[in-house]
Design a binder for these strands. Structure first.
Lengths: 195, 195
DNA sequence: CTTTTGTTTAACAATTTTGTCAAACTTAAG
DNA sequence: CTTAAGTTTGACAAAATTGTTAAACAAAAG
């Protein structure tokens, strides 16, 4: 048998991500992860050495994925409108699948008193902010600090999915109803940005 | 000495809230809470019986506080514009102090597979949604599903503070600079809602 | 001063969670 | 079939976290 052909290592990692990012169970123990994956708990140590190592790996991959999504959007040479439309489509799809990924990242950062990485991103971000400012000068979007533009955009996309459990109660909605509401937001957010 | 006149019980609870809601350390152990409060760990058990009991109490009080803030805003008989202006002022002030309170609530809900409470809120929420719809009919705000109006408003207020650690890195800003950016948002969000 | 009541502490116990290891198992290659 | 490499398991150990208790302490009342 060649190494890892049953994919147990991947299964464990995927299950951990599902618990953390999709179900928002960011406290999950190794036992809970193993149970959810349907494997023996000691396999977590066999494949990942320690709980912390698994967490670190999941954390790093989460960060890489987020960075990758943003990079692909920011660096593409589409016209601005399409770029944003594309961002909304891609990001909301991801966020509906993994609503708590950013929360997991932030929680881990707070827990370990911030080990950064991705200072390297600053230049790319600044380039994107400059591009946004150009669009404002052209009169295509409302003038403001371009940092607010980004903050607004991501807030409108991400937060409704993080707070879904609350809104489902307050709005008295079932899962499918709330999902439909989130679907509506793709168009709504775009029109919010480009009135 | 009359009971609790040193306020140790309150100190422990306030410290726990600070760790959870302000620092985002939602995994904090009883030892970490005790250390941060500068008291012996066993006092947590003396005053709160168990770790879970402390968490439950903090959770309930967090929920009550959020409900109270929303109720005071929604039930006040101010004109709509002032009502929203007031909401933005009050909520953003709270969120700048305790950015992770809602995240703590949601995390606990996810952890325990949602014990709701506050189904009772549904009626009040519906009344507020109806009021928003009236304002739309009057042409004072953009027409949309009033649920989206609320979601947008709270997303724009809350999420930038939750994601502050990330933005501080990506925007290369210090704490005071980021706080200033958040202050700007009071006006910005209001103008976003009432163009 | 003594008592009473409530508070704080350290030592200890219990529980929960994580980590280790040897043995059993599985499969493919020789 | 035998061997070799990787995988899985259960028993056990270690560590981390939480809970209990008795004794020391502090302050006010009698």
């Amino acid at each position: 048998m060649t190494p890892k052909d049953t994919g147990t290592e991947q299964l464990i990692k995927d299950t951990a991500k599902h618990l953390f990012f999709a179900e928002g169970k960011i406290h999950a123990t190794t036992q809970e992860i193993a149970d959810a994956a349907g494997v023996n708990r000691t396999l977590v140590n066999y494949y990942f050495k320690s709980r912390d190592a698994l967490f670190d790996q999941v954390f790093n991959e989460a960060q890489e994925k987020v960075v990758k999504i943003l990079d692909e959007v920011m660096e593409s040479d589409m016209p601005f409108r399409e770029k944003i439309a594309n961002l909304i489509t891609v990001f909301l799809k991801e966020a509906m699948h993994f609503p708590y990924r950013e929360i997991f990242i932030i929680t881990q950062m707070n827990r370990n008193d911030v080990i950064d990485a991705k200072r390297a991103r600053v230049e790319k971000v600044n380039a994107f902010l400059a591009e946004i400012e150009q669009e404002m000068d052209k009169g295509n979007i409302k003038k403001m600090n371009p940092r607010h533009f980004c903050i607004n955009l991501f807030s409108l996309m991400a937060y409704p999915l993080v707070t879904a459990p609350l809104y489902k109660i307050l709005y008295d909605m079932q899962d499918d109803e709330y999902n439909a509401l989130m679907e509506e937001r793709k168009k709504l957010i775009f029109e919010f940005i480009f009135p």
